[in-house]
Simulated scan of single mutants.
Amino acid sequence: MGDLSGCRSPRGAMEAPELAGGGANAIRRAVLIGTGSPGSENQCVALVRALGIASDNLTVYRVTRPGGGINDWLGVIPVSLHKLIDKLLVRPFSRRAGTNTPQKHVPNGGLAALSPSVPEADAKEIVAAARDTFDKEGPTLVIACGQETISCSALIRKLAPDCVFVIQVDIMLKMRLFFEIIRMRHPRFRPERFDLVVAPRHDYYTSTAKGGHQQEVPSLLQRWIFPREQPPKNLMFTVGALHQADPAALRLAHIAWRDELAPLTKPLLIVNVGGPTKKCTYGADLATQLVTSLYNVLDSCGSVRISFSRKTPQKIADVILQEFAGHPKVYIWDNQVPSNKRC
């Protein structure tokens, strides 16, 4: 995936850039824009690495929403309007009430792995830098990931279509609710506003009229709401979500974990505990069920290694830790460096 020559941009945009060579459209500089979500930003990083762009030629930014209090209910409005409301109404009211609005926590990982500090994205600032470096370094490749970056990346392309090539990753095309489908059809979400949109193939086709949403939308509105069966030419499909699990990464993981896993008695059972979804809420009953299932297979296992994700509810982790802490066959990873430490 190191060549964009086959990509076609909408009318009025620059030609697809080259990732190698010394031509006028050769890419030598890239800008990454994330949202603070490692899952989404890792897709952005995976694309950059697949394109072969060196990390010293990258500049990273984030688009973050205010968090806490009433801000948690304003996620459906544009980020710029949300920040304005937070500045003019939410924060002054919180100060008068004697309370502080907690800042939204941005976890480590994602773009933070490329830079010790990730500043807030400013479209005009990014455009100015792209224009200043265009004559010397050629066009700037802008890769944005996540819903919150859509307005920013679209504005960058609108202001400097001749100096940037904008790739939007991880637009959530798969919508379940009628309200969400209307949001997807909002002008901010139109693929034509970008040079290239990268999305999983199943997300696009399940959002079409034949994808099972006919009953959720009145027939008179289906033509306006649903995307075309024939996708636009600047929409690139992937088999699944972008990731960094390439052969090189797997080899490095094997080297890092080989000495840690080798001493464990076989057969080795690996249990990865994730987080809740809309269709699967993680409650104490689920934790109890998992504990029971593990006890049922412990006799047939040499050892069990358990790890939690960043989305695992603490109450679920506490139940498992309470049951298996100190068990001679069970090793619980502390989510740090490779370690067989028993938590």
Score class of each variant (00 low, 15 high):
Asp3Tyr: 06
Arg8Trp: 02
Arg8Phe: 03
Gly12Thr: 03
Ala13Arg: 15
Ala13Ile: 03
Met14Lys: 08
Glu18Gln: 08
Leu19His: 07
Asn25Glu: 06
Arg29Gly: 04
Pro38Phe: 12
Glu41Leu: 10
Leu51Asn: 02
Ala54Lys: 13
Ala54Asp: 14
Asp56Ser: 12
Val63His: 04
Gly69Thr: 08
Gly69His: 08
Ile70Met: 07
Asn71Gln: 07
Val76His: 09
Pro78Ile: 01
Ser80Ala: 13
Asp86Trp: 07
Asp86Arg: 06
Leu88Pro: 00
Arg95His: 03
Thr99Ala: 10
Asn100Phe: 07
Asn100Leu: 08
Pro102Ala: 15
Gln103Glu: 14
Gly109His: 08
Ala112Ile: 07
Pro116Ile: 03
Glu120Arg: 15
Glu125Leu: 08
Ala130Thr: 05
Asp132Ser: 12
Thr133Met: 00
Gly138Pro: 01
Thr140Trp: 03
Thr140Leu: 05
Ile143Ser: 08
Ala144Pro: 05
Leu155Gly: 01
Asp162Pro: 01
Asp162Met: 07
Val164Tyr: 00
Ile167Gly: 01
Ile167Val: 15
Met175Thr: 12
Arg185Ile: 05
Arg185Glu: 02
Pro187Phe: 13
Leu196Asn: 02
Val198Cys: 03
Ala199Thr: 15
Pro200Glu: 09
His202Ala: 13
Lys210Arg: 09
Gln215Asn: 07
Val217Gly: 02
Val217Gln: 05
Leu220Glu: 06
Arg223Ser: 12
Pro227Ile: 11
Pro231Asp: 08
Pro231Tyr: 11
Pro231His: 09
Val239Cys: 00
Ala241Ser: 09
Ala245Cys: 07
Ala256Ser: 15
Glu260Val: 06
Ala262Phe: 14
Thr265Phe: 05
Pro267Lys: 02
Val271Cys: 11
Gly275Asn: 13
Lys278Gly: 14
Lys279Ala: 09
Tyr282Asp: 01
Gly283Pro: 01
Gly283Met: 02
Ala284Val: 12
Thr288Ser: 05
Gln289Asp: 04
Leu290Asn: 02
Arg310Ala: 14
Thr312Tyr: 12
Thr312Asn: 14
Ile316Asn: 06
His327Ile: 10
Ile332Gly: 04
Asp334Gly: 09
Pro338His: 12
Lys341Gln: 08
Cys343His: 11
Cys343Phe: 13
